[in-house]
Amino acid sequence: MKIDLTDTTASKINKALVQGRRDLGTPAVGMVLTMVIVTDEENAYDSIRAAEEASREHPSRTLVVIKRHTRTLRDRTRPRLDAEVRVGADAGTGETVVLRMYGEVSDHADSVVLPLLLPDAPVVVWWPVDAPDTPAKDPLGALAQRRITDLYAVDAPLAVLETRASSYAPGDTDLAWTRLTPWRSMLAAALDQARTPVISAAVESEADNPSAELLARWLESRLRVPVERVVTAGPVVTAVRLGTDKGDIVIDRPEGPLAKLTLPGQPSRTMALKVRATSELIAEELRRLDADEMYAIALRGVGRVSHAEEEK
């Protein structure tokens, strides 16, 4: 069911949500969190679709904030809020409210969103594009226990990565880090099997790949060895090589969903290591809403971690 509201208020939106549930015969609210998506019209469809797919694992109320920048002076003096309320099959397993804000309303998005949050439930804010430099200090980010950004959506990801490192707050995370979960799991399992100290390391990827940089920093902090960044022609992270006295530990995935794992003294084996959809990444982030300490370590890098430990 879809309900369109023009020049509306948060109170009217809440009433439409209640009425929509009643009309469908499902008055009870069984959602576990509020997901706030801050995006533009161009990326709204894909973002909503990813959130609705993730809601099958985490039923949620999804609030989509679209700030419509007006061009004429007349429009700027006419603040307005339009909403599209979706319940039932049109909203995955939860509810979706698309909020289009005009004029001065877009400067106070937090005031619009606040009355629409589920009571006593966690709040997650996701910026698919155009994330603020300091998510925790953003008015919408300040409402959330979890703040999700994506370094793949910026023009200079490594420069923005440094900004995020200096402004990190508990609850911040990035999908460039989430994409590494299968890599980190496979590397941890390989090191458990090899049971030998690592003396060198290299991460191979396309140039300026933020996931590769985060992976290299994580390895440096965990293994306490320098990690070489190797530029290859392949997409995203293509290989990790860990040197030991017994031989190299190698995970090689030049393309496709399969990787080749090589351990010293053992035959190579093929492992699944696919590139996951955005909905899967969001679903993973919603499984835990506490601070991701490993992300903080990887973001800051071994040098900053060592300096922080010395200060303690």
Rank of each mutant, 00 (worst) to 15 (best):
V32D: 05
A10L: 07
V227W: 10
R100T: 14
S306I: 15
E285P: 04
D248M: 14
A291P: 04
P132T: 15
G20D: 05
A291D: 14
L99Q: 07
E162L: 11
M101G: 07
E95C: 07
L63T: 13
A216I: 12
T70C: 05
D23Q: 06
A233F: 12
A91Q: 08
D172R: 06
E285F: 07
V105H: 02
H58S: 06
R300G: 08
A165Q: 06
V198M: 03
V64S: 10
D40H: 05
E41N: 12
M271L: 10
A91G: 07
R195P: 04
A121T: 12
L73C: 08
T181N: 05
G256F: 01
E162N: 11
T196D: 09
P235T: 14
L263C: 05
S55P: 01
V160L: 15
V105L: 00
E162C: 08
S185G: 10
A188F: 05
L261M: 02
I297T: 14
E285R: 10
P128D: 06
E280K: 15
K12H: 09
A272D: 05
A212G: 00
L261V: 04
R21D: 04
G303A: 04
V160C: 05
T181L: 06
S111Y: 09
I3N: 04
L180H: 11
V105M: 00
G256C: 01
A176Y: 06
I282K: 10
S55N: 04
R217V: 14
E42L: 11
V87Q: 03
R195H: 08
D248K: 14
D150K: 03
N209A: 06
R288S: 08
D208S: 03
D252A: 05
D110E: 07
R49N: 13
P139V: 14
I66Y: 07
E42G: 02
R269S: 00
T181A: 12
E309K: 13
R71P: 02
G301P: 03
A190S: 12
V98D: 01
D40Q: 06
G30A: 09
R61N: 03
R49I: 05
E42N: 10
P197L: 08
M101C: 10
V227T: 06
Q19T: 11
A50C: 06
Y168G: 00
V65K: 03
L33A: 06
P135T: 05
P226R: 02
L140V: 13
V129Y: 08
T163L: 09
V225I: 03
A51Q: 13
G141I: 14
W183E: 02
G171F: 02
P170W: 14
A50W: 13
S60V: 15
M294A: 13
D7E: 11
A176E: 03
K274F: 13
V124A: 10
H108M: 02
P257M: 10
D133F: 13
S268P: 02
I37R: 06
S11E: 08
E213I: 11
